[in-house]
């Protein structure tokens, strides 16, 4: 009696699979790197649900190594990767979104992604209350301890630098100017791992069908 393996095989393509050459042409990755990312994608997308799509639980499991409770930041990143807003990250979405985190990706793309990440209610502005909420979420998930007054001071000081027209919200233009003056604010938007995936993660590299 035969049996069907649930492990991701080389020949089986995940739903939403896209041609690596097309993805390479649209991102900061080479074809070989996109193929290496596909190996990573398969590993993540079969970690719990075995359907070749990355669900939120699988994304969080990969980020934290354990099943932990809800995380505002992980939820936000997942939702931004899920470009079609259908509750899963498809392969093309995975590659296109990760490309923004490539060290060589344009700063403007990183800034735009971070702006969407921090615009919690999708109003097109980062409001003071949203920034306060983000700082409190950071404190909740870390060992850092700041008093309420210290949080207020940090948020107020940041707004005094970023909100140049003083309307208590940061618009995309103000954000662009702010990150130009404060590039460290985008530090988490670059992943050195992505600089050369095929060298850093040889186990993800299959025999490529193409030469870059």
């Amino acid at each position: 009696m035969g049996c069907v393996s649930s492990s991701p095989g080389r020949s089986r393509r995940a739903p939403g699979y896209e041609d690596p050459a097309v993805l390479a042409s649209q991102t900061s990755f080479t074809v070989n790197e996109v193929e290496a990312l596909y190996e990573l994608y398969k590993k993540l997308s079969y970690s719990i649900f075995k359907d070749g799509l990355i669900h939120k639980e699988e994304f969080q499991l990969a980020l934290f190594r354990t099943s932990k409770g809800p995380s505002l930041f992980a939820d936000r990143v997942f939702d931004l990767f899920d470009l079609k807003r259908n509750g899963v990250i498809e392969f093309g979405e995975f590659v296109r979104s990760l490309s923004i985190f490539h060290p060589k990706a344009p700063e403007s793309d990183k800034a735009a992604f971070a702006f969407k990440l921090y615009d919690l209610r999708g109003t097109g502005y980062i409001e003071k209350e949203e920034l306060r909420e983000l700082v409190v979420a950071l404190l909740d998930e870390s060992d850092l301890c700041l008093s309420d007054s210290a949080v207020e001071e940090i948020v107020d000081n940041t707004f005094s630098q970023a909100d140049s027209n003083g309307d208590d919200r940061i618009d995309p233009k103000e954000w662009e100017e702010f990150v130009k003056k404060n590039p460290a604010s985008l530090r988490n938007m670059s992943l050195p791992y992505l600089q050369d995936i095929t060298t850093a993660f040889p186990s993800f590299v299959m025999h490529s069908e193409v030469d870059d």
């Binding site: 990573l40 993540l44 990969a62 980020l63 934290f64 190594r65 995380s71 505002l72 930041f73 992980a74 990143v77 990760l98 985190f101 971070a114 921090y118 920034l131 983000l134 700082v135 979420a137 950071l138 998930e141 870390s142 850092l144 301890c145 700041l146 008093s147 210290a150 001071e153 940090i154 948020v155 000081n157 940041t158 630098q161 702010f178 404060n182 460290a184 604010s185 985008l186 530090r187 988490n188 992943l191 791992y193 850093a200 993660f201 186990s203």
Partner: peptide
């Protein structure tokens, strides 16, 4: 509470310290 360097950061630098914003976990085997 909180060290001096934390107080000197702007809010976005502070938020950037969130471990759940560090996507390198996706690549760890």
């Amino acid at each position: 509470p909180g060290d001096k360097s934390t107080h000197q950061m702007n809010a976005f630098q502070l938020i950037g310290m969130a471990s759940s914003l560090d996507l390198s976990g996706l690549f760890e085997e």
